[in-house]
Amino acid sequence: MAVYFHEEDLPDGVLAPGDDGGSALAVDTETMGLVTPRDRLCLVQISDGGGDEHLVRFSPDSNYDAPNLKAVLGDPNRVKLYHFARFDLAAIEYYLGVTAAPVFCTKIASKLTRTYTDRHGLKNLVEELLGESISKQQQSSDWGGPVLNDAQREYAASDVRYLHRMKTIFEERLAREGRTEMAQACFDFLPTRARLDIAGWADHDIFSHA
């Protein structure tokens, strides 16, 4: 297992699909904050589940011209695994101009199957489902600085390290509870939900009667 660090784009051939069209990709982002149009995209983390994680960092003056990364994220034949896909999809679409779908979101899968708890954070899921522990200490650190330290890189890599294994577990649980179709409908809607966030409807439920 290794963590690879890249500036501005993936190298040629990294995470390119194989003869089977390519496996699912775990994806995450780090930004300067939680308001997508204001808080720039600093880092994209991505892994095909084979044991390596790739971190792509963007500088403050980046034009986000990352053709290799965009090709991988925009590949319609490869499922993208996220934890809280709504936020990552918005950041990727706003800054990279790519709809990084089709989608599987472990947070939504958790809320649809782990109805016995309100603890749906990545740390909680990794501990319960996989029996491992991750640190979230660097979650609120400065991702736009000139250097990302080892702790930040490890934190970023851990955000995509466990998603493939969790997807397998959640697929089984969704089927067990008869909620696979419902979950898929939610996943399919997420790119639109992200666009609503970008367009200014982040906090208003347009489906409500109000």
Rank of each mutant, 00 (worst) to 15 (best):
P102N: 10
G49R: 12
R57C: 01
N77E: 12
D118C: 06
V147T: 12
E172L: 14
G145F: 03
T29I: 09
A24F: 07
D48Q: 07
S47H: 03
K167D: 06
C105N: 07
I108S: 02
K167R: 15
A175Q: 15
Q152C: 06
L34K: 10
S110D: 05
A2L: 09
R176E: 15
H204V: 15
A16H: 11
K80F: 02
R176I: 04
A185M: 12
K136T: 13
M32R: 15
P17F: 09
N149Y: 13
A194P: 10
I92S: 01
L122W: 09
I108Y: 02
R38M: 11
P191D: 05
D39C: 06
A66H: 02
P76I: 07
S110H: 04
R173N: 02
G145Q: 15
P37Q: 13
D203F: 12
R38Y: 09
L125P: 04
G121T: 06
C42P: 03
V35R: 13
S133Q: 13
P17N: 09
G145K: 15
G50N: 04
A66T: 01
I206P: 05
L125Y: 03
E127A: 15
K80C: 05
N124K: 09
L89G: 04
D39T: 05
P60C: 00
W201Y: 15
V3W: 10
H83C: 02
K167E: 14
T36M: 11
L148G: 01
T29V: 14
L125W: 05
P76W: 09
A71P: 07
V72T: 10
C42A: 03
A91W: 07
L112H: 00
H209A: 13
F58I: 01
L174F: 08
A202Y: 14
L43N: 00
Q139P: 07
Q45G: 07
H209S: 14
